[in-house]
Design a binder for these strands. Structure first.
Lengths: 221, 221
DNA sequence: ACCTGAACACCGTTCAAGT
DNA sequence: ACCTGAACACCGTTCAAGT
């Protein structure tokens, strides 16, 4: 298992930044943001507490690096794809990634502008250009897409995450719809009226439909 | 200052849940989510650490209650207003509230479905009904509005919040635009091309324009 | 250059004890 | 019913000391 190793350290392989990030992602996926502690990390990596902090100095940096690692592996649009298809690929890619790693949504939705957000903005913006949006509307179009994609993905992930454990998706929908039926008719008339729609809805396709709606608004026929 | 007081406690006035929430909002506004601790609260309220927890048992409950308190005081649409105007009132109300209290955005964007979100959904949904949206599209229309309003407001608040301190808004825009100009032309062609638009843009009016865009998509002329 | 391990200054939560 | 104050089990961060 150990590859050619000639450095004279006390570890068979020196600890790398990448190893730390990979372990951090595992912890975050398993237990959410609360589960990411330097102590848990040092246990998993079989190293000292401060050794990790030599490579990554703060917890914030660690979370940012883990988020960047996920976003960097998003599926790339095919080279022959239309601009609209490319936006959809990016949008659904982030949606799925955030559903799988809810802490990514938390971070993207709430952290200040950073390199990861910057790169998402750039990728979306290039497609906005390709879509033929009027140049004066470039900024607002890319912003609208970014806001909606990140915001809706984060909220979806928050919705589907149960406090205790993840239960079957359809069970969750059915149970929530039941809760909605039981609400006070005077206070929640609308919510009660759409409880049935909740039961049969599909977050993912509705999310895509919303993206289409925004794209339609950007390029009037 | 003390009003008629006949209860035989050792405090002139008994500690109330409302007092705690008000103090919590002050702390959150002053220093963000990190500044809200039971210790800081007990100092401000001149009471013991555990006394607070008798009224509100956990930090999560405290944050949720503070968020609900802000959302409950959102400006109400005027009774004569059109459905479209009402949505805009709600949307801009939340935008402004989250810009003033960024931790509200953090909470709404990332917390699981709860009463506060439920009530926002209901209020938006009632206007969706009034707009004349086809019943089959009620659920998705209300979801799209909720997702966008909460998501975009949270991201805007994250953008305008500097790590250290808040500086003048225009200075921040100018400085960010300068940063964008300095980006690698090969890697960030789009971002560089819209740096000028960033300098003159107005988050608030663009946010409203995005809401209009979604409303337009919901009710085809 | 990389890692160790202890120390420090915090947290939220629990809980027996008071009034 | 309401509050106190101490104890508990955690945190992230810093840092002198090792190799």
């Amino acid at each position: 298992m150990p590859s050619a190793q000639r450095t004279s350290g006390r570890r068979s392989n020196a600890l790398t930044r990448q190893q730390i990030i990979t372990a951090a992602i595992d912890l975050l996926d398993a237990g959410g943001a609360g589960a990411l502690t330097f102590r848990a990390l040092s246990l998993q990596l079989k190293t000292g507490h401060g050794a990790i902090q030599w490579h990554i100095s703060s917890k914030g940096e660690l979370l940012a690096a883990a988020t960047a690692a996920i976003v960097d592996t998003l599926p790339q649009p095919e080279s022959g794809a239309s601009a609209r298809e490319s936006v959809r690929t990016l949008a659904i890619g982030l949606f799925d990634a955030i559903e799988k790693h809810p802490w990514v949504g938390r971070h993207l939705a709430n952290e200040a502008w950073n390199t990861t957000i910057q790169r998402l903005f750039e990728r979306l913006g290039q497609q906005v250009q390709a879509l033929g949006v009027a140049p004066a509307a470039h900024f607002i179009a890319a912003s609208a897409l970014l806001n909606h994609i990140v915001g809706a993905s984060a909220r979806n992930a928050a919705n589907t995450l149960l406090p205790q454990a993840r239960i079957d998706r359809q069970d969750l929908l059915d149970q929530t719809a039941q809760d909605w039926d039981d609400l006070d008719p005077d206070e929640y008339p609308f919510t009660r009226s759409v409880a049935g729609q909740l039961r049969t809805h599909d977050d993912r396709s509705e999310y895509l439909a919303e993206i289409d709606l925004i794209l339609d608004g950007m390029i009037p026929a």
